[in-house]
Amino acid sequence: MTNRFPNDDSFTFSNGYYCWVTAIFVDIRNSSALFGDEDKEKVAKVIKSFTSETIEILRNNDNLREIGIRGDCVYAIYTSPMKRDEYELAEKTFYINTFMKMLNELLLGRNLPEIKIGIGMSTSKELVIKAGRKDVGINSKVWIGKAVARASKFSSFGNKNGIAPLIFSKSSYDQFISFLEEKNRKSKPKEWFNKHYDEQLGTYYSANIIKTEFNSWILDGMKD
């Protein structure tokens, strides 16, 4: 057992790691309507802008272990042995939430459709194994636990039915909230979150947190 799992080079088909994992999923809302637009070139520009910049935000972390695109969703999975790791990853969700304001301003300026997203983040101890066929070079890591599945599900909750875009599992929230309070002593960060309960997923929290300096720059016309 270990709190951190290594990079791909250390994985074999005969070993596995049981460790803390955090997953972030960023899912486009109402994507079927967007993808069904007859102007495919317009849709392609929107999707490229969303995916490229979201990946850029998510990939910049030494604990990153997997990143990719699943249909209309960008996801990243990290090893997260320390509470501070959870705070740094939560900060990424705040940046993505703010970036979407910038992206939609740019899309509107080019007569392209706005997009909405849901962002899900979840943490748990997972068994990570390598599965596939060694002799044909087809293999992938498999995450056996709750973090990846729940982050994916939570991303489908965000920005829907009146719920805020950011959704955090209780385990993620419990890990990063003290750091968020420390960084925002003049505010009351716990009041930024709404608590929810789902029979299958348990307690989770929603929020609509943005990075104020980034947002001010957007409101000022995104000038250098």
Rank of each mutant, 00 (worst) to 15 (best):
M121S: 09
M121Y: 01
M121I: 14
M121A: 13
S122Q: 02
S122T: 02
T123P: 06
T123L: 12
S124F: 02
S124L: 03
K125E: 10
K125D: 08
E126V: 14
E126Q: 08
E126Y: 07
L127V: 14
L127Q: 05
V128T: 03
V128P: 03
I129C: 13
I129R: 02
I129P: 08
K130G: 09
K130T: 13
A131V: 15
A131D: 11
G132V: 08
G132L: 07
K134S: 15
K134L: 11
D135C: 11
D135M: 12
D135N: 15
D135R: 14
V136G: 05
V136P: 07
V136R: 10
I138T: 11
S140L: 12
S140I: 12
K141I: 09
K141Y: 13
K141D: 07
K141W: 10
V142T: 12
V142L: 13
V142M: 10
W143K: 01
I144F: 08
I144Y: 03
I144W: 04
I144H: 06
G145H: 08
G145M: 07
K146L: 11
K146R: 14
K146M: 11
A147Q: 02
A147I: 05
V148W: 02
A149F: 14
A149K: 12
R150N: 15
A151G: 04
A151I: 03
S152D: 10
S152E: 09
K153T: 04
K153F: 10
F154A: 00
S155T: 01
S155F: 05
S155A: 14
G158E: 04
G158H: 02
G158D: 05
N159F: 10
K160D: 13
K160I: 12
K160Q: 15
K160F: 13
N161V: 11
N161C: 12
N161F: 12
G162S: 07
I163K: 08
A164P: 06
P165Y: 03
L166H: 01
L166F: 03
L166Q: 09
L166M: 08
F168Y: 15
F168I: 02
S169P: 05
S169H: 01
S169C: 05
S169F: 01
S171D: 15
S171K: 05
S171Q: 11
S172M: 15
Y173T: 01
Y173N: 02
D174K: 03
D174L: 06
Q175C: 15
Q175W: 06
I177H: 00
I177L: 07
I177P: 02
S178H: 14
F179K: 00
F179N: 04
L180D: 04
L180R: 00
L180T: 05
L180V: 09
L180S: 04
L180M: 09
E181F: 02
E181S: 13
E182D: 12
E182P: 05
K183W: 07
K183T: 10
K183Y: 12
N184Y: 04
N184T: 06
N184V: 06
N184C: 07
R185Y: 08
R185H: 07
K186A: 14
K186T: 09
K188I: 13
K188M: 10
P189I: 04
P189A: 04
P189Y: 01
E191P: 05
E191D: 12
E191M: 10
E191Q: 13
W192Y: 09
W192K: 01
W192M: 04
W192G: 01
W192A: 01
W192F: 08
F193Q: 01
F193M: 04
F193R: 00
N194G: 08
K195Y: 06
